[in-house]
Simulated assay, not measured.
Amino acid sequence: MATASSSPSPIARLTLALSVALARLSSRERNAVTIAAWVIGLGLVWWVAIAPALDTLRQAPTRHARLDAQLGQMQRMAATADALRSQNTAQPPGRDEVLRAVETATNGLSGTGQLSVLGERATLTLRNTPPEALAQWLAQVRINARLLPVDSQIHREPGSPGWSGTVVLTGPGLGGTP
């Protein structure tokens, strides 16, 4: 009867080889090898498990503050979206109210813009209007008059302090569609 010989697994062979090698060493050498193995093992545990966790803990306050700032910004954007959504469900302002709101906003351009209204469209002609003033004007007419730009031809001359050109707006208060 033949018996099947089973060969040891690679791990078992390695363990056997290490045991034989350690057995050949003196007691003092075995202690030194054991201490070295523990130092290497503890170093690996530090490198793989503890150091990344400590790094994460050190960075947590900074990340938390950054995420809080992002959350605040998203909440402000959500509030703005809700306000715009509720504004769109409200009855559009009448033509007279729209014209008053656009003229009031245009007065804030300090004479660098001239408004003309023909039918369903309002056209603003700009002459070296500062960018901040134009942005504020656009926000005011969007919110107060509910007008949106449908065409713009603006440019900035080299060395000039602002924008020149035209911006055409329309909206439900003028009889057009935004």
Rank of each mutant, 00 (worst) to 15 (best):
T89Q: 10
R156H: 07
S9F: 05
L109P: 01
L57T: 02
S26R: 12
L18H: 07
A51Q: 09
S5E: 15
A90W: 09
Q91V: 15
T104H: 13
A65E: 08
M74E: 05
T15G: 11
H64N: 10
T3D: 14
A83W: 02
D55S: 11
T106N: 15
L67C: 13
L169G: 00
G72R: 04
L169N: 00
D151F: 10
I154M: 01
L99I: 14
R85S: 13
T15N: 10
A60P: 02
S152F: 03
T177W: 14
P131K: 02
P52A: 09
R95K: 15
R28P: 03
I11G: 06
R76A: 13
G171Q: 05
A139T: 05
I40G: 13
A53L: 13
T125A: 07
G72Q: 05
R100K: 13
A12R: 07
Q136A: 12
L115Y: 10
A78I: 08
S7R: 05
G119V: 15
P61T: 07
S152P: 00
V102G: 00
T123L: 05
A4C: 12
L25Y: 09
G175K: 12
T56E: 08
G162Q: 06
P131W: 01
T80P: 00
A51R: 11
V33E: 14
A69T: 06
I11H: 04
R121N: 15
R121S: 13
G72W: 03
L124V: 12
N128M: 09
Q91L: 15
G108H: 10
A2K: 04
A145K: 01
A78Y: 11
R85L: 11
A2E: 13
L147N: 03
A69F: 01
R24A: 14
V141C: 03
R156V: 00
S9E: 14
S5L: 10
L84A: 08
N128R: 04
R58N: 04
L134M: 08
R146I: 06
L25H: 14
A83Y: 04
V98L: 09
G41Y: 06
V102C: 04
Q59N: 04
T170R: 00
T34A: 12
G165D: 00
A83N: 04
G175T: 14
